[in-house]
Simulated scan of single mutants.
Amino acid sequence: MTIPNWITFSRLLGLPFLLYGLHNPTELSRWICLAIFIVAASTDWLDGYLARKLNQISDLGKFLDPLVDKFLVLGPLLALVELGQVPAWGVFLILARELAIAGWRVNQTSISGANIWGKLKTVSQIIAISLLIAPLPAVWQIPSLIAFWISVAFTLISGAIYLLPPTLTKENA
C-alpha cells in the first residue's frame, strides 16, 4: 500500500472520536470535533496531492478515497440528525446519491477520479459540516443550514452529471 493510500486510510481513525464527541456535545467537545474533522478532511487534499506528486495514483486509491470520504461525511451528518440540527431527509438525499454512485462504479471496468463537480460537492460538504459542528452563536444557524442545503444541491448535481451517458454530455457540450 502506498503512502497516499495510508493517509487516506488514516482519515478513518478520527471518526470514532468525532462521533463520540458529538454524542452528547459540549462547547469544548464541539471545538475538539471540529479540529478532528478539519484535520481528517485536510488529508483528503494531502493524499491526492502526494499520489500525483509521487506518481502513486492507484485503482485502490481511486476506490478507497471516495469510500473514506463517504464515512467522513455521513458519520457526522448522522450525528447532526440525531442532534436535530439537520433534517434526516436531506442526509438521505446525500446517502442515496453516494449509494447510487457506489453501485454504478461496481459495474465499471476502470475507476475514474473525481471531476470538478465531485470536488465542489466534497468542499461544500466539508464547509457545511464544519459550520454545523462548530459551537457558533445562534446567528450562524441559518447560514449553516444554507451551507448544508448547498452541499445537498452539489451532491445531487454531481451525481446526475456522473451518471449521464458520455455521449449525451458530449452532444450537449
Rank of each mutant, 00 (worst) to 15 (best):
W6M: 00
W6I: 00
T8Y: 01
T8K: 02
F9H: 00
R11E: 00
R11S: 02
L13E: 01
G14C: 00
L15N: 03
L18V: 07
L18D: 00
L19R: 02
L19H: 03
L19E: 02
G21S: 05
G21L: 05
G21M: 04
G21T: 02
G21N: 05
H23L: 06
N24D: 08
N24A: 10
P25V: 03
S29F: 06
R30I: 08
W31Y: 11
C33Y: 03
L34R: 01
L34P: 01
A35V: 09
A35I: 07
V39K: 03
V39Y: 04
A40E: 01
A41R: 00
A41K: 01
S42R: 03
S42L: 07
T43M: 02
T43D: 01
D44G: 00
D47L: 06
Y49P: 01
Y49I: 03
L50G: 02
L50T: 01
A51K: 01
A51V: 07
K53V: 02
L54A: 05
N55G: 11
N55C: 06
Q56F: 04
I57G: 02
I57F: 04
I57Y: 06
D59K: 07
G61T: 10
K62Q: 10
L64E: 06
L64W: 09
L64G: 04
D65L: 09
P66H: 08
L67W: 08
K70G: 14
K70F: 11
F71T: 12
V73T: 14
V73M: 14
G75Y: 10
P76Q: 06
P76K: 04
L77H: 05
L77T: 05
L77I: 13
L78F: 15
L80Y: 08
L80M: 14
E82F: 14
Q85K: 15
P87G: 12
P87N: 14
A88G: 15
A88L: 15
A88P: 10
W89A: 14
G90V: 13
G90F: 13
V91N: 10
F92A: 15
L93N: 11
L93I: 10
L95A: 15
A96T: 11
R97K: 13
R97N: 13
L99I: 15
A102Q: 07
A102I: 10
G103C: 08
W104R: 06
R105I: 05
R105M: 11
V106S: 08
T109H: 12
T109D: 12
I111K: 09
I111M: 11
S112Q: 13
S112D: 11
G118K: 03
G118I: 04
K119D: 10
T122M: 15
T122L: 15
A128D: 07
A128L: 11
I129K: 07
S130P: 04
L131S: 08
I133D: 01
I133Y: 09
I133W: 05
A134I: 07
P135Y: 08
L136H: 06
P137R: 11
P137G: 10
A138Q: 13
V139F: 13
V139A: 11
I142A: 09
S144F: 04
S144A: 15
L145I: 08
